[in-house]
Structure formats: C-alpha cells, structure tokens
C-alpha cells in the first residue's frame, strides 16, 4: 500500500528527534558515547549516577545500566547495538529493563513502545560536533504506536495553546 493512498491527516509514526552541537572534535564525542567509563561520566539527568554499567560495544552487543536518582530510586535500561559505523553512526534498540536485562515496560506508561529504535549520528564541522538522535518505536503494536504518536504530538507539534492552559493550571497549584 502506497503512502499516497492515505490523504487523511492520520499520522504515520514520525521519529522523535533531539540534536545538540558540542564544542569538541567528533573523535572525542564518539569516545564519550562508546567507552563505558566515559559514558558513565555523563549519561543520565543531573544528579543521577550510574551505579552499574556493562558494555559490550559491537553489533549485537549490549549496554546494560542502572541509573540511581538523587533520592535513591533505581532505573534500569539497556541498549542493544545493531549497527556501528565509527565515528559516524550508531543504531541501537533502546528499552527499559530489569536488573537481569529482561525487557520491562515504561514505568509511567504501560502502553509506551517496549522497544525503541534509536539512530545517533555524529557530524563534525569546524571542530564542533553535531549530535543527532532519532527515535521511533520498533515493531510497535497498534496501541504502542498510538501512545508514541500521542506523546510525540505533545512534545513536538502545535500544542502550544493546550499546554499553555495546562501550565496555567499547574501554576495555580
């Protein structure tokens, strides 16, 4: 079935994209992503520490980690590397997991896609490196696809007005 057969505005699943420019050569940014001890230095929100990290950096290999929040909560996750093109591109499957590496659901949303395919690209220009990560659900069920599209809509589409109203509501306490 051709995509052109679908003239309605029903969304096909779009990728969620985050990008950032770092003032560092690509070689160094690549190392920060692909060497366990370096990745442990920065991966995770402010105040989080990586308490466990096992990395087998090769196609088919796994990075299994545990992040500990400032209030002591643990969050396990894993990457399964699919494709590695040094120092340009990493394709991996990203998921939540338990401490044994088994797949688990998103803690806040049980219909969030179980696995996400993420593609990270490293592009160097003038000594700076542009890092781009794209995510999309991997083999989602219909329900998972809708959940992703809903959240995606909340994050990157024209929701300004609705979210402003929410912001007002939240500000009122």
């Amino acid at each position: 079935m051709s995509a052109k057969n679908n003239p309605t505005e029903e969304p096909s699943t779009e990728e969620f994209v985050i990008t950032r420019v770092f003032d560092a050569p690509r070689e160094l940014v690549w190392k920060a992503w692909t060497e366990r001890d370096r990745l442990m230095q920065w991966f995770g929100p402010k105040g989080f520490t990586m308490s466990t990290a096992k990395m087998d950096f090769r196609p088919g290999g796994i990075f299994h980690y545990c992040l500990r929040s400032p209030d002591g909560k643990e969050m396990w996750g894993k990457f399964v590397y699919r494709e590695i093109v040094a120092p340009e591109r990493i394709v991996l499957v990203n998921s939540f997991s338990d401490e044994n590496g088994g797949l688990t659901r998103h803690p806040m949303s049980p219909t969030w896609p179980l696995e996400m395919l993420s593609t990270t690209t490293f592009v160097e220009q003038g000594g700076k490196t542009t890092l781009t990560i794209k995510w999309k659900p991997l083999n989602p069920t219909e329900e998972e696809r809708k959940t992703f599209d809903g959240a995606h809509g909340g994050m990157q589409q024209g929701w300004t007005g609705t979210f402003e109203q929410l912001a007002e509501y939240l500000a009122k306490g």
Partner: peptide, 24 residues
C-alpha cells in the same frame, strides 16, 4: 501525564547533554 512524560524525556536528554558538554 503527557506533560510529565514529555518533560521527563526531554529533561533526561537535555540534562545528559549538559553533562556531556561539561565533560567534553
């Protein structure tokens, strides 16, 4: 719930990138 989710996801990566920036 959507606002919280989006905020969590975005701040996870924004804060990670801030830390990566400092580290680099």
């Amino acid at each position: 719930p959507i606002h919280d989710w989006a905020k969590t996801f975005e701040s996870f990566w924004n804060e990670s990138f801030d830390r990566l920036d400092d580290y680099l």
